[in-house]
Amino acid sequence: MRFREELVLNIKAPREAVWAAFQDFSGWPGWAKAIKEVSRVGSAWRFRARGQAPVDLVWVAEATERRPPEFLAFQSVPGTPHNLEISGWLRLSETEEGGTHLELLLEGHPHYDSPLLDKAVDWYATLFGEPSKLLKVTFEQFKEHLEKTHSQRELSASST
């Protein structure tokens, strides 16, 4: 099952802070409930997320284009062990209020060593909306994490 998900969020935090937090992949398990672990694989990153039981979603991706702090394109690394092929991009722009407008496009498809497991995953995804649900929930948590962190920094700065 192929998927294409587009996500748009407005985050009450400066664009540079959103850019830095997005690229702090090793910190994702601290705020994203579905992300179990993130590790470095050469120039890429390996993510492991809670997926369709009993299988976790695993993808290894690297940047294909980077224009800090506004644009990042990424895709799966061929030849690395994973069960989710992805590609996409993230675009950040400043809002008039000093926040960040985030646009994310993610395309891909899960694939497993077993044709039976592939069919089971397709069935599960059709019924329960994975991975779009996972993506939306994760980025709502990202927004909440950033806004909370940014708000705390503003309070600390104003009290000193």
Rank of each mutant, 00 (worst) to 15 (best):
A20V: 08
K33R: 12
V41W: 03
L84A: 08
S132L: 06
T126V: 08
P81T: 07
P110H: 14
S43H: 08
S156L: 15
W59Q: 05
H145S: 09
R50P: 00
E147N: 11
E103W: 10
R153F: 08
R50F: 00
R91E: 12
N10T: 15
M1F: 05
S151H: 12
E147Q: 10
L105R: 09
K148W: 09
S151I: 01
E5A: 08
S39D: 10
A157M: 10
R66S: 15
S156G: 11
W123E: 07
D56H: 10
W123T: 14
L104H: 00
G27I: 04
S114L: 14
W45L: 01
S132I: 04
G79A: 03
A17K: 14
F139K: 07
A34G: 07
W19V: 07
P14M: 02
V137E: 15
V121R: 09
K136M: 01
Q52V: 14
L102D: 00
E6P: 01
T126G: 11
K36F: 00
H101G: 02
T138K: 04
L72E: 11
S158V: 13
W123I: 12
R67K: 15
E5P: 00
K12S: 11
T80F: 06
A21N: 00
E107S: 02
E94L: 02
F139D: 03
P69C: 11
D24N: 15
K136I: 05
E65P: 00
D118I: 04
G42P: 11
L135F: 12
N83L: 01
V77W: 09
S26N: 10
V38E: 01
Y112R: 00
A125F: 01
D122F: 00
G30P: 03
P14C: 06
S93P: 03
M1A: 09
N83G: 02
Q52W: 11
R91N: 01
A21H: 00
L127S: 11
F142N: 03
D122N: 11
L9A: 06
K133S: 05
Y124R: 10
L135H: 07
E94Y: 03
Y124G: 06
E94Q: 12
F47Y: 15
L105K: 01
E62A: 14
E94G: 13
L146N: 09
R46G: 03
K143W: 09
F74L: 04
R2H: 10
T100P: 09
T138E: 04
F74A: 01
K136T: 08
R67N: 10
D24G: 08
L92S: 03
P131D: 07
G99R: 13
H101I: 02
K133E: 10
F3D: 04
S159I: 14
L9Q: 11
F25K: 05
E96Y: 00
E107F: 02
D24A: 14
S93I: 08
R4G: 03
P68M: 13
R40I: 06
L90S: 01
S114W: 12
Q141A: 10
W31A: 04
L57W: 14
K148T: 15
V58A: 03
D122V: 06
I86K: 05
E103K: 08
T149I: 00
T138M: 09
A61C: 02
Q23D: 01
L155D: 04
Q141P: 05
E96W: 09
K143V: 07
R2N: 14
I11V: 14
E62W: 06
T64Y: 02
G27E: 03
M1N: 02
T100F: 07
P54I: 02
A13V: 08
P14L: 07
F142T: 11
K148R: 15
T80S: 14
I11Q: 04
